[in-house]
Design a protein around this nucleic acid. Structure first.
Length: 492
RNA sequence: CGGGGUGUAGCACAGUCCGGUAGUGUACCUGGUUUGGGACCAGGGGGUCCCAGGUUCGAAUCCUGGCGCCCCGACCA
């Protein structure tokens, strides 16, 4: 086990926190609830951004940027949305500080600098964006608008956890406007599929695509779609949401257009987002007691090379071989790190790069120079093999593909083993306590039943899976009829 | 907001009960030996002991007030 990190079985929560810090991903800042994302952590986030950004652009979206501040009058325009976020908003009330006459060297808020209208620091940008769309949209010819923004938002959470829930976080938020409901719903579903493809294809993390229940719906949305993932401790994590907003925001902000037929109509909308929370998901989905396990498609470093040498001479000879190998790998698009520090021993480096989750490690020493070989170790299984030096550059791509596939398969197997069908309330409670994971059960579709189950078991309906089969049954709580199973779980 | 904990070197912590020269591990710096799974030896540097006030000859330690942070709960898309 890695030094200074507790094992997952000992204390999963502590394992997660320590791993985030020890792997150099992020740390707590001087600001309550806000984290510093460190270079290594940020480089993983950048890989996520790059992949997602390309997917958005490939599906016709463009990036833009809207203000951090939302005037209170705009913020409150869409009532449900405003009410949903009101309890966790940071508000700017003043625009100036001045020297405190009573405390030397200290500043105070200048009471004369009160803003006429308070500014809400965006917890989400529907308000500011729809108030802008109003100016952009007159005709059906102006539609659709397909915009994404990469931004930070602030939600004054009571309790925070690195990446999973921070008071300020980074995300992307898409906001689209359409001429009819059908097109908006298609957009909502398109993005849901983009998110699922990203989670599974890049993060190697299987997800369940579904709809949120009424009680879990985004404030101001008509319908909320989501992808739900399963963490190694059996808790669910919402990894992304895509909302069909209906005409709610158009009505709130008077965004209307003249249709082909010459009629004045309200615009249909969607919004969708994923955040730095995905970093938390990535960590908890794959990593082990030795540290991070990164899927090659998101790893900032694919291959780390550790030279083993006694003298400058030896290092020089090794470096020659490594340079050749590195450039062959780089030509194929892989990021290679040559860890030639002479300040740390090989064993230290092995442990460190394992902690950081680099998928493949090569070790080259005098022995290998003699034999024309290199030791290849994969992070996911910890298996080592000796390869011919001149074969490495051509075999690594396959190995990285194997690793990507293997960690997905492993996570999928775990997820599938943690979906349990139950037909009684007692079973639900037992499975939640003993096994965790998703519990597939019948539900009568009411907010009351969901709330009661949540109150009693702390489990929520994660989603109504899109692929749920029609199946007659009885709600495990109320006994009322139900036509399909939904997934319950305790969640992050 | 409720419950608990905590604040001392970059980091992790001891010392606080019972007041008397500021400690340990790690990290850092120098030199040497090492290097195929977290090296070793020797030497060295680094502190407003969270802040403010009080008690005292003397406060990291006792008293009063304040602040920060962490964990658990409630809350949470």
């Amino acid at each position: 086990m890695a030094k200074d990190i507790p094992s997952r079985s000992e204390d999963y929560s502590l394992w997660y926190n320590e791993l985030v810090k020890k792997a150099d991903l992020a740390e707590h800042s001087e600001v309550r609830g806000c984290m510093v994302i460190k270079p290594y952590g940020y480089s993983i986030w950048e890989k996520m951004q790059q992949a997602l950004d390309k997917m958005f652009k490939d599906t016709g979206h463009s990036n833009a940027y809207f203000p951090l501040f939302v005037p209170k009058s705009l913020f409150e325009a869409e009532e449900q949305n405003a009410e949903g976020f009101a309890k966790e908003c940071a508000i700017v009330t003043h625009y100036r500080l001045k020297a405190d006459p009573n405390k030397k060297g200290k500043l105070m808020v200048d009471p004369d600098a009160r803003l006429e209208e308070e500014l809400v620091v965006r917890p989400t940008s529907e308000a500011i964006i729809w108030s802008t769309y109003k100016k952009w949209i007159q005709s059906y010819r102006d539609l659709p608008i397909l915009i994404n923004q990469w931004a930070n938002v602030v939600r004054w959470e009571m309790r925070t956890r690195l990446f999973l829930r921070t008071a300020e976080f980074l995300w992307q938020e898409g906001h689209t406007a359409h001429a009819n409901a059908d097109e908006a719903i298609k957009e909502t579903e398109l993005i849901l599929n983009v998110y699922a493809d990203f989670a599974e294809g890049f993060m190697a993390m299987p997800v369940v695509k579904g709809r949120k229940s009424e009680g879990e719906r985004f404030p101001g949305a008509v319908d909320t779609y989501c992808i739900e993932a399963m963490m190694q401790d059996g808790k669910a994590l919402q990894a992304g949401t895509s909302h069909f907003l209906g005409q709610n925001f158009a009505k709130a902000f008077n965004v209307q257009f003249t249709s082909k037929e010459g009629k004045l109509e309200d615009v249909w909308g969607t919004s969708w987002g994923v955040s730095t929370r995905l970093m938390g998901a990535l960590i908890m989905a794959h990593s082990d007691d030795d540290g991070l396990i990164l899927p090659p498609k998101l790893a900032p470093i694919h291959v780390v090379v550790v030279p083993i040498f006694r003298s400058e001479e030896e290092l020089k000879k090794i470096t020659e071989k490594v340079d050749e190998l590195s450039s062959a790998l780089r030509k194929q698009g892989y990021a290679v790190k040559f860890d030639n520090r002479d300040t740390q021993k090989p064993g230290f480096k092995f442990a460190e790069w394992e902690l950081k989750g680099v998928p493949v490690r090569l070790a080259i020493g005098p022995r290998d120079l003699e034999n024309g070989t290199v030791e290849v170790a994969r992070r996911d299984t910890k298996e080592k093999q000796v390869m011919k030096l001149d074969e490495v550059a051509t075999r690594i791509p396959k190995l990285l593909d194997d690793i990507q596939a293997n960690i997905y398969t492993k996570a999928l197997k775990f997820r599938d083993e943690h979906v349990t069908k139950v037909d009684t309330y007692d079973e639900l409670k037992r499975v939640l306590d003993d096994k965790g994971g998703f519990v597939a059960a019948h539900w009568d579709g009411t907010v009351e039943t969901e709330a009661a189950i949540k109150e009693e078991t702390k489990a929520t309906i994660r989603c109504i899976p899109l692929d749920a089969k029609e199946e007659a049954g009885k709600c495990i709580y109320s006994g009322k009829p139900s036509s399909r199973r939904v997934l319950f779980a305790r969640a992050y």
